[in-house]
Design a binder for these strands. Structure first.
Lengths: 344, 344
DNA sequence: GGGGGATTGGAGAGCGCTTTCCGAGTGTTA
DNA sequence: TAACACTCGGAAAGCGCTCTCCAATCCCCC
């Protein structure tokens, strides 16, 4: 039962016949302790089954051994189904996996925090400043999010995954989204596509606008100054609708770049029901190389996003920043790669 | 910068001209405080920008407002790629989403803990007993895992997702895996399948053995006493291999139940390259109704697993148990449903 | 043999908060 | 007016730990 008192440092000290301070030193591996006492103390620890109380320790050391994974959302409704979608998406899991691969080895824990309101953000920053966690990895979803700035101003060590929408002196890792989109453009061109369209994500989120810009720029360089575009919201269904619209407006379309795999899945469905063969009639290139890409049929040609590596790097950067808060603000940009499968 | 001291209760008290105790009472909404003082105190809180320090509070209240999500794994290698797979799988995300849907409303945080070794488990239980978190939601992966028992013996409030492999007096939520598998059997039979096979998961994990048992039992009742079976490990590739083997040994196969969608994806690929039409030649039923099921082609007929609801219920159960540790041990079993799509 | 330096263990002051215990003030009744 | 019950705010004792001082011990060198 929870009720029985757990042994404390005091108990161990009594058992070992030394002072609390000595036990603390032994446990934390500080020298200046007679090897003989050392052994006596460890014996006592074993006998009492002592486990240090992290809370109490953190209170004085100002270190928790925890980093927060903050998902910053712009809450529409409180029971917004979006969050459910977000977690079910492999994106979230891949980030967690990447973070854990680094954190775990360092004995650092991950605490999940979701904030949807400005009030929530304020409380979060307050808690972090109070040493709730040593730092934060931030997944910022809204197009414009005050959180990154709040964090830096609060002096909270933090690393963003994905560049901030507005310039803020904060560490981040990101993907060269524009290069990735350019890769898609090159590929469609190389395949001989003449009428190329695009299904983009919301124009105000950085990852999305970078993909739009990269794709257009690359195409413009090869003489395609005009790219018919429909906008989706990164869900499967929005991709299906966008594809239908795009096709209606541009019946001769023979190639399309879809800004993520989930929407590409929808696009595939729309093309199928429009009787177009993929890649025969229309070539499709996705983005992310998510598990959906392999499951699709035809399997999606897509742009690989080394999300696990990026998250791992973010974790390393955060750990470094925690260690050395004055470090220069840094960013690491990853290069995407084209993965050729069946759809283009 | 992190260095500047944050306002403490003491500072607020000084600012308001009252004692620490009074401020504490006001903040925690305890009556017995003059409404006038009440206001004075909140003013002072606002002026100083005070945020209570959770750590310090937890130390004395023995409540953290945090629950741990424990993933208990049987570590093969330390840099086991399995964990990466696990997180990328929608399973993990769906659980997190379900938990958060309940926890978030209660202002409870989720701390992710991964343990792979017995030593890690011991440390974890010690930390939990010390009040690192108020309770734990446990995802137990290994076939036989000492953790559930350790948790109950340590008096740590905990709820398992998926029944324990060996009987332990611990709360859990689970899916009626056997019923789900029976549903799959019925469906294949109803379709008129005569030669039915199965691709199962590892026989020693409960979810898997329940599916095997449910499927066999249901089929046996309808005269199919023998079900050719291949075993996979829940990954796509293992499903592909298993399907190939199953087909080689049973060329006349016309129906197969695959114990999860991921393996079913592999099975589909194997069938395709063997030149079998799905569902024309061979009908395929998956399990989980994961996002992969929709992406597959043909889309998978599968067994729906209300994982989000289960996780949400687990969260509620845990919260209840934390509130009332002496409560009777409970379990909640969810009923699966057949989702008919293209593959069967 | 005595003084200086190095080494080691212990006492105790907090970290920021909650909460019990008391005393002081207020109102009510005889 | 005195006695009593009640309400409300403050002093202070911890929660379990770390770490700075400081005292005690030991060794070496002159």
């Amino acid at each position: 039962m929870r009720t029985e008192r757990l042994p404390t440092l005091e108990d161990v000290a009594r058992e070992a016949g030394v002072s609390r301070a000595t036990v603390s030193r032994v446990i934390n591996g500080i020298r200046n302790v007679d090897p003989q006492l050392h052994e006596v103390v460890w014996d006592a620890v074993g006998r009492t089954g002592y486990v240090p109380n992290r809370l109490a320790r953190s209170l004085v050391t100002r270190r928790t051994g925890t980093v927060a994974l903050v998902v910053s959302d712009s809450e529409t409704h409180d029971d917004d189904p979006f969050m459910g979608r977000f977690f079910a998406d492999p994106y979230f899991g891949r980030v967690v996996g990447g973070l854990m691969s680094v954190l775990r080895g360092q004995g650092v824990q991950l605490a999940l925090q979701i904030v949807g309101t400005d009030d929530g953000r304020k409380r979060l920053v307050g808690d972090l400043r109070n040493g709730q966690a040593d730092g934060a990895i931030v997944l910022s979803l809204p197009a414009v999010d005050p959180l990154p700035r709040m964090l830096t101003e609060g002096g909270v060590p933090a690393v963003l995954i994905g560049r901030p929408a507005e310039p803020v002196p904060i560490d981040y890792v990101d993907l060269a989204n524009d290069t990735g989109a350019a890769l898609a453009a090159e590929h469609l061109l190389t395949r001989g596509c003449q009428r190329i369209g695009m299904i983009s994500g919301p124009a105000d989120v950085p990852a999305s606008s970078d993909r739009i810009a990269g794709f257009r720029r690359s195409l413009a360089r090869r003489g395609h100054g005009w790219v018919p575009t429909e906008t989706g919201n990164f869900t499967r269904d929005s991709g299906e609708i966008a594809m239908r619209d795009l096709l209606a407006a541009n019946p001769q379309l023979d190639g399309v770049f879809v800004a993520n795999d989930l929407m590409a899945l929808g696009a595939l469905a729309a093309l199928r029901s429009a009787g177009r063969d993929v890649p025969g009639d229309v070539a499709v290139v996705g983005f992310d190389d998510s598990s959906a890409a392999v499951a699709a049929s035809p399997a999606l040609t897509t742009i690989r996003h080394p999300l696990e590596d990026m998250a791992a790097e973010a974790a390393r950067m955060l750990l470094a920043r925690i260690e050395e808060p004055a470090m220069r603000v840094a960013s690491v940009i990853y290069e995407p790669a084209l993965i050729e499968r069946g759809s283009a």
